[in-house]
């Protein structure tokens, strides 16, 4: 269970488990890059990023896979859904690795975000906003120490953003993970312990 993430750049940042952080910056400054650096998807930076004092660059591919399965849950900016899988299958492909949730629980989550009628529709025919919600549910269907979301509500109306915020707050209370959200302006409406400017 990872309890903190340290970004050892010229402007250091520190993320602790159980707390909420909002990273804000204008477009093109490097919000998405930062989230990619944390997970070790990219390593084209100067400085160090440590997860519980261990440099992410020292993780083996197998350890990274475990990290993505059980420690870091992502909602990527480009979502990274599989277009030929249905909405449910896109969630299940993550969930089946750890059997984190039952199908009933997933159905209930779909219900809450207003996607129950999109359950068995291929992701490629969903709108971007609907895909964003599928990607969000997918991130909630795995164990994690940190939930990292890259502009998760950029294409959502306020009502849907509110629903997502409620779900994530409830889950956090239950599971105690930390939240790192990047924002261009529109922010996931939850309580943040710290707002960081890049």
């Amino acid at each position: 269970m990872i309890s903190d993430i340290h970004i050892g750049f010229s402007h250091p940042m520190h993320f602790e488990r159980g707390k909420n952080y909002c990273v804000e910056a204008a477009s093109g400054i490097g919000k998405s890059s930062l989230l990619h650096f944390i997970g070790g998807f990219r390593s084209d930076y100067i400085g160090t990023i440590t997860l519980d004092q261990r440099d992410i660059r020292d993780f083996t591919p197998r350890e990274r896979a475990r990290l993505y399965r059980t420690e870091l849950a992502y909602v990527f900016q480009n979502l990274r859904l599989f277009p030929n899988l249905t909405a449910f299958e896109n969630v299940q492909i993550v969930n089946q690795q750890t059997s984190f949730r039952s199908e009933e629980e997933i159905r209930a989550l779909f219900e809450q975000v207003g996607l129950s009628d999109k359950w068995d529709q291929p992701a490629q025919i969903l709108s971007w906003g609907q895909q964003q919600r599928v990607a969000f549910l997918r991130a909630l269907c795995q164990p994690c120490s940190f939930l990292l979301m890259d502009e998760p509500v950029s294409h959502l109306d306020d009502a849907n953003a509110r629903i997502m915020a409620d779900i994530v707050t409830r889950e956090q209370t239950k599971r105690g993970f930390g939240i790192v959200v990047t924002s261009l302006g529109k922010t996931l409406p939850i309580h943040y312990d710290q707002h960081l400017q890049l």
Partner: peptide, 10 residues
């Protein structure tokens, strides 16, 4: 690449 990003090993 996307499958690896959600935790699948090579």
């Amino acid at each position: 690449r996307n499958l690896k990003a959600i935790g699948y090993t090579s």
